[in-house]
Amino acid sequence: MTVLTETVDTTARAIEAGLFTWPAEQPRLIGSRCKACGLVTFPSTSGCSRCTADDTEQYLLATTGELWTWTVQGFRPKSPPYEGPVDFTPYLVGYVALPGEVKVETLIVGVGLDDVKIGMPMELVIVPFHSSVTDDALVTFAFQPVSAARPAVFTTAANPSNTGA
């Protein structure tokens, strides 16, 4: 697994503490696991939605999985709560199934509308997120195809050249 830490400002603050390990050489999403039945959730929770037990432990999620479903966000979301670029570009979101763990809802980068496919292998990446509201330079998590060529500039939007939704 490769994480794009070399191109991300590692001093940038994570968009939310406790969401993923950061800064870290190999960042991981931070979930929780039910001590009674083993159910994995993300983000971490104190209770189990399957067995109703209330004792969970921190669990670092796998960094690779398969794209389970996806869609395009075709219009700029209302702000608040959205803090992405004012100059809007449609972006991809989806769920990545981490085998035996959980399906994580995520921004999808490094692939466009013409090539995105259910079932494609995906890996965790940490990407810059510039808040258009607070002007803070933050980082958030996303997934990209395992074989994706690195876009020259990372944004939270999908490759703008072919997501003209």
Partner: peptide
């Protein structure tokens, strides 16, 4: 849900509907 979910543009019902039918069609 944490604020990050809305800040990064995932707090939209439209996305859910798109993703659910996308999977169902598949």
């Amino acid at each position: 849900i944490g604020d990050w979910y809305g800040q990064t543009g995932m707090m939209l019902t439209t996305q859910f509907f798109g993703m659910k039918i996308q999977r169902y069609m598949h």
